[in-house]
Computed example of a mutant assay.
Amino acid sequence: MDEDHGTDFDGLAEAYERMATALPLREYVEAHTLFELLGGVEGKAVLDLGCGSGLYTRRLRGLGASAVTGIDSAEGMLDHARRRAAAEGLDITYLARTATDPPSAGDPELDGRFDLVSSVYVLCYAPTREALTGFCRTARRALRPEGGRFVFATLNPDVAVEPGWYTHYGIDFTISPATRDGEEAPAVMKVPGFDEFPLLPYRWSRQTYEEALHEAGFGSVGWVWPRVSDEGIAAHGEQHWANYLKIPHALYAECTT
């Protein structure tokens, strides 16, 4: 988890890992949709922007990516990620970076080195339009000069406001219509059993995302509705997922140069 919330997440890496396995939504929808969009990663260099505890960097390496790097501003998350990777014998690079403010002189450890950039629930934590564009610039600069793809999951700007809409899936939201300085105020996302998480994502509009991505140098932006894996349907049935798929809390995007 990158950016202004970085220090909030420093001591929460273990809880973050537990949440990944405690919520079926994360495996059956989030991971399934993300890896479908990423496609085969064998032999590719992949950057996880806002890698948090390293959950997805480890999976990417296990799927055959030739090189995996995770960046985050929360040192506690990075420490946990390094320990887990070492314990599992995985060669993964973790770097401390403030991705909302890429250096004007460039970053030789990141720029032009990757075939794919992935990011899960990170861009929605940009507190300002400028910070959002910074995230996008970091992703664009990281891709190889000959091209590449940026795949991310973010908060659905049209997230359901009806109380209890997502309770069935282990999450819930408190939505405020208030704005601050003309920009959308954050929504409060609650995860029962994980009250220690200060989850305050911003409901940036699709247009705002697209403007930031184009400004950063991406040419094409395609929005993707989340999908449920066959395993998720087998485990819980189609009806279980009906409300979520009608108004999901997250949307996914595939961006190309």
Rank of each mutant, 00 (worst) to 15 (best):
P201Q: 04
K44S: 13
Y125R: 00
L12H: 07
V159D: 04
D79Q: 09
W223M: 02
S73A: 14
R18W: 08
H168W: 10
H5P: 11
T69L: 09
A87Y: 06
F152Q: 04
T128Y: 01
E210K: 00
E14W: 00
R18A: 13
A105F: 10
R59Y: 11
D107R: 07
E183D: 13
I71H: 03
A45P: 11
A85E: 04
P103E: 13
P226I: 04
T133W: 11
E231L: 13
E238Y: 00
V151T: 12
P201V: 06
G182S: 09
A87T: 06
V191I: 15
A96E: 15
H32Y: 15
V46S: 04
T98N: 14
M77D: 03
A65E: 09
E88T: 05
P192R: 02
G237H: 08
V224D: 05
Y125V: 01
R84Y: 07
A178G: 03
T57A: 07
V188K: 10
R149C: 13
T21E: 15
Q239A: 10
M77R: 00
D172E: 15
D111I: 04
L251F: 13
D10T: 02
G52A: 05
E215F: 00
R227I: 09
D48G: 01
H80N: 08
I92E: 10
D111K: 01
P186N: 07
L251S: 00
H236W: 13
Y94T: 11
G170P: 14
W225V: 12
I71D: 05
L25N: 01
P102Q: 02
A139D: 12
R59S: 04
R18D: 15
E88F: 00
T133H: 10
E130W: 02
I233C: 03
A242R: 13
A20E: 14
E36K: 06
R144E: 15
E17K: 00
R26H: 14
G112T: 08
V221Q: 05
P163I: 07
E17R: 07
V68Y: 01
S66G: 14
H236A: 08
F152W: 11
D181N: 11
Y94D: 14
D48C: 02
A160W: 08
C51D: 07
L55P: 05
R129Q: 12
T69A: 13
E17S: 08
P248M: 00
P198N: 03
D195A: 08
R227V: 13
K44L: 15
S119I: 07
H168F: 04
P248Q: 01
Y125Q: 00
P177H: 03
L47T: 05
L213Y: 03
Y169M: 01
E27D: 14
V221G: 02
E36P: 14
V117S: 10
Y28E: 15
T257N: 12
D158F: 03
S205F: 09
E215A: 15
P226H: 06
D10P: 12
P103K: 05
P103R: 04
A235H: 04
R61V: 07
T100V: 12
A126N: 10
E210D: 09
E27T: 08
W241K: 03
F194R: 00
E14R: 03
K190P: 12
G62V: 05
G219C: 08
S220N: 11
R97N: 06
P108A: 09
R180E: 15
L110W: 01
Y169S: 00
G6V: 08
P103N: 07
L12A: 10
E231P: 06
P163C: 06
G64I: 02
P192Y: 05
G112H: 07
